[in-house]
């Protein structure tokens, strides 16, 4: 709504700005301390900047170079033998544009943790395929959707979108109706899919 008032408009008291809902008690990020964090601290030192718990879910934030060593260390030393998911979140206004998120689970401990890292656009994080085979398709999907290329990945190509497609749909600057019109024209034979 534009700020300047139109002539003749009745002036009304401004509505109070809608406050974001107050988080219920106990919904704050609390520090995460356990044997596991001690072990990781002694091994990786200040490469891990944060150990936290939110809503009962444990996560840590590390520098990008340390992520694969941490995943490997956790697999060998702490039984985190199942890589649940690899995904990314796009924050276009931030200097380090992407959050890269790895979710790990340990069958022996029955514990699930998240590893997060921030990377700049164009940074090529190391692949996790050498540690967990399941990372193969998951990383291909991250590449497909966000354009993050993983270094050392055996088969770095698109997985859901067609091979010749331009653009990465889950980036925030990719509009929801946007499509690669040239690709559509060439392969589907119509002017536009919209």
């Amino acid at each position: 709504m534009p700020d300047e008032k139109k002539p003749g408009e009745v002036s009304r008291p401004a509505a109070p700005p809608q406050a974001a809902p107050k988080p219920p008690a106990g919904m704050a990020v609390t520090p995460w301390e356990s044997e596991l964090t001690q072990l990781l601290k002694s091994q990786f030192g200040d490469q891990i900047s944060e150990f936290s718990i939110y809503q009962g879910q444990e996560f840590l934030v590390a520098v990008p170079e340390a992520v694969i060593p941490i995943i490997e260390f956790l697999k060998l030393e702490a039984d985190f033998d199942y890589l649940v998911d690899v995904t990314a979140v796009d924050y276009p206004k931030r200097e380090e544009r992407f959050d890269l998120v790895y979710i790990l689970y340990s069958f022996a401990r029955n514990q699930r943790i998240r590893i997060k890292t921030r990377i700049k656009e164009g940074y090529r994080p190391l692949t996790a395929v050498d540690v967990h085979l399941t990372a193969n398709w998951l990383e291909r999907e991250v590449y497909d959707m966000f354009g993050i290329e993983f270094a050392g990945h055996p088969d770095m190509k698109r997985i859901l979108m067609p091979e010749g497609w331009h653009g990465h749909p889950l980036r925030k600057d990719y509009a929801i109706t946007q499509m690669d019109n040239e690709w559509v024209k060439e392969n589907v034979g119509i002017e536009s899919g919209q």
């Binding site: 974001a20 809902p21 107050k22 998911d85």
Partner: peptide, 15 residues
């Protein structure tokens, strides 16, 4: 539950 759902800033993984 409020009519307009606005969860506090944060992230969760639920499976």
């Amino acid at each position: 539950i409020p009519k307009l759902i606005k969860p506090p800033v944060g992230e969760v993984y639920v499976s």
